[in-house]
Design a protein around this nucleic acid. Sequence first.
DNA 1: ACAAATTAGTTGCGTACGCCACTAAATTCG
DNA 2: CGAATTTAGTGGCGTACGCAACTAATTTGT
Lengths: 157, 157
Amino acid sequence: MKSAKPCTDNPSACVNGAVRRTSRRLGQIYDEAYAPCGLKATQYAVLNHIAKAGTPKMGELAQTLVMDLSALGHTLKPLVRDGLVELRVDELDRRTRRVLLTEQGVQTHAAAKRISNKMAERFDLAFGREAAAQLRQTLDLIASDAFAQALLAQADD
Amino acid sequence: MKSAKPCTDNPSACVNGAVRRTSRRLGQIYDEAYAPCGLKATQYAVLNHIAKAGTPKMGELAQTLVMDLSALGHTLKPLVRDGLVELRVDELDRRTRRVLLTEQGVQTHAAAKRISNKMAERFDLAFGREAAAQLRQTLDLIASDAFAQALLAQADD
DNA sequence: ACAAATTAGTTGCGTACGCCACTAAATTCG
DNA sequence: CGAATTTAGTGGCGTACGCAACTAATTTGT
């Protein structure tokens, strides 16, 4: 009869707390790994998405990264300042800005990509390739709009 | 022969990026959930750890939360300002500060705890109780010192 | 065509976090 | 016992994020 409320008092009963704790840990490790490029791990993530998307609108990028639009704007600021990224008004819709990598941005991204690959290999080795793949999939699911809606929908109980 | 480098170009090839993205998503949802208490999700996590530990030293708390000591200090500041938490010099070792909940801190934590439990139930329902438990365990592992060392140890290749 | 509503971003403010440099208190050791 | 070292926190600075309020550009409804 103890199965009703499983692990309420567990240190990480709250998934959100557990994710943030993990985020802090990985942040330290990955920030250090990317340091030779002069990038933070978060900045690499942004550059990488830009590189893959080409010249996305800020809104598109924000959505992909599950990031508030204003947060993306803030995050982009140091990258623009350091000449890795450029914002350009879209001539067809002058409200939107296109984000693109500068020449230097491409260079830096390439170097960071090598580090990223190395880190991915390390992670797979330490955690197991299978398990790592499954974890990534799980995280993607939880970060998805659909899951958020499923969670929010229960508010109407 | 394509199995050598599995999913390097996947959006979340980088576990760190995936965790952060998930963290942002959950942050929005949980921050909103805790809003009635006047707390952010992160603040609840801190209060909860304090409540469980009693009157921990700052350093102990930081370690538990996998947080930089100075970061903890910063995070505590608004909580102290709002009268939820108090810092007290340990008379046996005047270097260390003990963290403790004020009367109001206990009240607020109790209210937040109810919300936390409700959210945990919702999460379990949306994600599956089994899967959720396993995920928490996985996250705890990745956040552990041991795993960090396993990851760092590979730097000597 | 034009006022109202919608969409895309920005700015200001506050919290979240980490690193480095610095202070203070304790511990170690010659 | 007093100097050097270690340990615990703080403060400054910079990035990471989100919300609310505001501006500018586009779309819609009549």
